[in-house]
Design a protein around this nucleic acid. Structure first.
Lengths: 209, 209
DNA sequence: CTTGTATATTAGCGACGCTAACTTAAGTTA
DNA sequence: TAACTTAAGTTAGCGTCGCTAATATACAAG
């Protein structure tokens, strides 16, 4: 018993105190469990078991379950922002390709991390109210919004760029949501997501009707 | 004690057996609790308490919690379908007003029953796999899809009406989702939903570009 | 080496989902 | 009406979970 615990401890210890970095390890483990079981069905207890710590240990690092979820959501926004910026930067300045790349990355992130995506944009009050989450959320939105704004703003058509930004975000978010929830499948529609987004995007960025 | 129980029983008895119609009462009570607490936080136990039955009673009518949720989702689709048909029928045949009315009802239903809406379109496998839910879900989709199809089909533009249907559904679903999850607010955008939908709808039903 | 603090443990409470065994009421038949 | 069947409810209890209190332990600093 003591031997096992000591061995486990050695495996996970990296620096500092007993576990090493239980806080970061918990966020990663919980994120994996959320993707496997869903936000509603995962348990902190299982995360503890797989990390070899007691079920009381997390409460030295987090206030409660919602607090852990907030950290997972924050990490998700950081990842998403990085991916959107990288995709955007592969297209020349001022081109519509930059906007398309951001939108496609938005959808691809949702498909790759559906439950984390739902956590990020769902309405759990404690997560949404968290200041750190709000902050990284704004940074993430700004990548899309400011890109659209700069493109529309540099066009001779004087329509408000904010309205177009909202329209694009709305559409891309709807596509991501219906795709990850398998609603297209349930409605017996097989949808080419990237083509769909391109078609809608050109209508919204083109002449107004 | 016996008096209390007898009195409670009398209050709720309407027809048939002990409670009257615990099955229907549970679906309604659970739906209300879901709207108050969210799909993830409500409890069957509280529904039982408020109905004056033991916590074991529900399992004479439902297999498990997911089964109750499926019945709530089914009821939601039935309500939504009725509302969409009623709104559609207030506009003349063949007009775009019929499509707009359906879309607006979709969003209004989501705003009025946000947690039920998330249950209906979220990806809980047991709920989505339920045959009764699938059936009423198809009926609901068909109201929108067939209306769009009949409008586009009667137009001289020969584009596939299915693509436009998908685009409209996607947009309306995104607007509903971002609105009920308060994501527009978090991104500091105040959005006039009906105007947004009208603007996007006219772009999608208009000339392609 | 002692002291202080961050980190972890054990033990346990209350709520929940669900089951097993039992009781009661409603409907059926003689 | 009395006996039987079955649907609908009860009580008791198991295992899991979120979270807390009290306690132990490892590291850091003086």
């Amino acid at each position: 018993m003591v031997d096992m615990m000591a061995a486990l401890g050695r495996m996970k210890r990296k620096a500092g105190y007993h576990h090493g970095d239980l806080e970061e390890a918990l966020v990663q483990t919980v994120q994996a469990l959320i993707e496997r079981d869903g936000v509603g069905d995962f348990s902190i207890a299982e995360a503890c078991k797989s990390l070899g710590v007691s079920t009381a240990a997390p409460y030295k690092h987090f206030a409660d379950k919602q607090d852990i979820l907030s950290h997972v959501a924050k990490s998700g926004f950081e990842d998403m922002t990085r991916q959107m910026e990288a995709a955007r930067d592969q297209h020349p300045l001022g081109s519509t390709g930059r906007i398309g790349a951001i939108g496609k990355t938005y959808v691809d992130f949702a498909l790759a991390n559906p439950e984390t995506f739902k956590l990020m944009f769902g309405s759990t009050p404690d997560v949404k109210g968290n200041d750190a989450v709000k902050s990284v959320g704004h940074a993430c939105f700004d990548v899309l919004i400011s890109e659209v704004a700069s493109f529309i703003g540099s066009t001779n058509e004087a329509a408000d760029s904010l309205q177009v930004s909202v329209m694009l975000w709305t559409f891309v978010h709807g596509a991501a949501s219906l795709a990850i929830d398998k609603d297209y499948e349930v409605a017996r529609m097989d949808v080419d997501l990237h083509a769909l987004i391109e078609a809608a995007g050109s209508r919204m960025l083109g002449h107004r009707g």
